[in-house]
Structure formats: C-alpha cells, structure tokens
C-alpha cells in the first residue's frame, strides 16, 4: 500500500507577513512544517504500521527551502519525499497548485492521498477538493477518525450539523482534521536517518505542467491591495503567572463583569 501525504512549508509562528511589493506571502523567514500536516503524516504512519506493510511518500510544492519541512516529516518516519520546486511556480494559487500536485500524484499512483486540515498561511482548507477532482478520485474531508479495511476507507467528518460517517473505496483522497491524532516527535534515530532517505526534486517540466498553468500565469486569482485591519480598540496584555489571576479579576471588575 502506498500512501502519499501532501505537506506544506509555512513561515513560522508570528513571522507571517505579506510582502507589499510582490503582494505574495513573504517566504524569506525560517520555515516550518505546517503543523496541521503533521497530523496527516502521523495518520499515514499509523495506517502503514497497522497494515504491517506499505510506503509513506511525502509530496510538497514550494521553494527549495521547503526541504526543511520535509526533513521533519521524514524524521517522523515517512519513507521518501518529492519536492516540486520551480521559479515558475512561485505565486501559484489554488488552481495552479492543484495541477502540479495532481500531476505528481498521477506519477506515484498512491492508494491513498492524505491532506492536512489547512495550511496555516492560507487557511484555505480547500486544496484537496481541486486535487481529488483532477485525479478523479473519491474524497472525504474534515476526517476526525479514519479506518481502513478491505480496500475501503471510512471517515468520521464533522459538518455544521454534527458527525457524518462517509465511506469510499481506494484509491481515495482524505483530508484529516487536527484532532485525529497526536503527532509523534521525531526520535534521535529518526532525525539522523532522515538525511539518508530518498528525496526527489522535480521541476514543472518534469511533471509536464505547461508554463501557462503554473505560478502567476496559471493562477486565476490575484491580490489587488493590502490594508491594515480595523483595530479592535485597546487590548491589554499580562505576562507571567504570578499575579495574573488578580489582574484578571481587576479587569473584570472594571468592566463590571464580576
């Protein structure tokens, strides 16, 4: 069984900003594995472990530095990685990203494709819908519990009305939620071993993605302008635990809430 996991490198923590000049996300800072994707990696590893066989392949599209994010996921236990990186891919929107990922997945023919809950920089929680359509495979999203038996995946999905249970035959596409599991920490052995695992770097040409379907040229959305968010008024900050409870009470009293 082959499981492909789509992972993204995102700027770390509070460092996220949009570059006013390019109107693109500033990817210059240190990058990290999108935390939501660690859940997808973990789920893939668990499925492989309980099946007692199989292969977990990571797939990412991003700048060459996205190899950092991949390294963490390899250290968790994934078997190998594919990095799609190309200057012409910069500025790709959902549509352009979905083509490149779908082409790479077609080459791999995985039985199962896993996605994380959302990319912490785009907050889209949409990409899998486009990829599943291009791959012509069944999709289950927002999966909080996943089981795999006899070539059928069953997922528990939370919608606006409560929990649904949805089933699909393999090969399928599944997007997991961040509550599906607790991602493992890479062991020292895992970290050391990650460097030796196979990593393949592909360009758009390798995948047969036409240049007018990638990057800004292939995108059908654009950022027109940036502005400051309206301020919510004054916000106060208390640091440290010491006298925090007293300070909270004083604040609530001032607002006449206690």
């Amino acid at each position: 069984m082959r499981i492909a996991v789509c992972v993204k490198q995102v700027p770390e923590g509070a460092a996220k900003r949009i570059d006013p000049a390019t109107r693109r996300l500033d990817r210059a800072g240190e990058g990290a594995l999108n935390a939501y994707d660690a859940n997808a990696v973990e789920e893939a590893l668990r499925l492989k472990e309980s099946a007692g066989e199989g292969e977990v392949v990571l797939l990412t599209m991003g700048p060459a530095r996205a190899a950092d994010a991949i390294r963490k996921a390899l250290a968790m236990g994934a078997d190998r990685a594919i990095l799609v990186t190309d200057d012409a891919a910069a500025g790709s929107d959902l549509l352009a990203t979905s083509i490149a990922l779908a082409r790479a997945l077609e080459r791999e023919q995985p039985d199962l494709v896993l996605f994380g809950q959302q990319a912490a920089d785009s907050d889209g929680a949409v990409l899998w819908g486009a990829v599943a359509d291009r791959l012509r495979r069944p999709l289950i999203s927002q999966v909080a519990e996943l089981t795999l038996a006899d070539g059928v995946v069953t997922g528990k999905r939370q919608s606006e009305f409560g929990y649904d249970v949805i089933r699909a035959p393999l090969p399928a596409v599944v997007a997991v939620s961040d509550s599906i599991n607790e991602p493992r920490y890479p062991s020292l052995k895992g970290i050391m071993g990650a460097k030796k695992k196979p990593q393949e770097t592909l360009t758009l040409a390798d995948l047969g993605v036409e240049s007018d379907r990638a990057g800004e040229a292939g995108s059908r959305t654009e950022v027109l302008a940036l502005s400051e968010p309206p301020s919510r008024g004054e916000s106060r900050r208390i640091d440290g635990d010491g006298a925090a409870p007293e300070a909270i009470i004083a604040f609530l009293a001032e607002k006449r809430l206690v």
Partner: peptide
C-alpha cells in the same frame, strides 16, 4: 468548500 474547490478545478476558474 469541497464543492467550490472541485468546481474550480473542473472549470479552471479562480476561487
């Protein structure tokens, strides 16, 4: 969200 993303790919439309 899933319908919109699928439709975007199908129609090659910006979402």
């Amino acid at each position: 969200s899933d319908v919109a993303a699928g439709l975007a790919a199908r129609l090659e439309a910006g979402l």
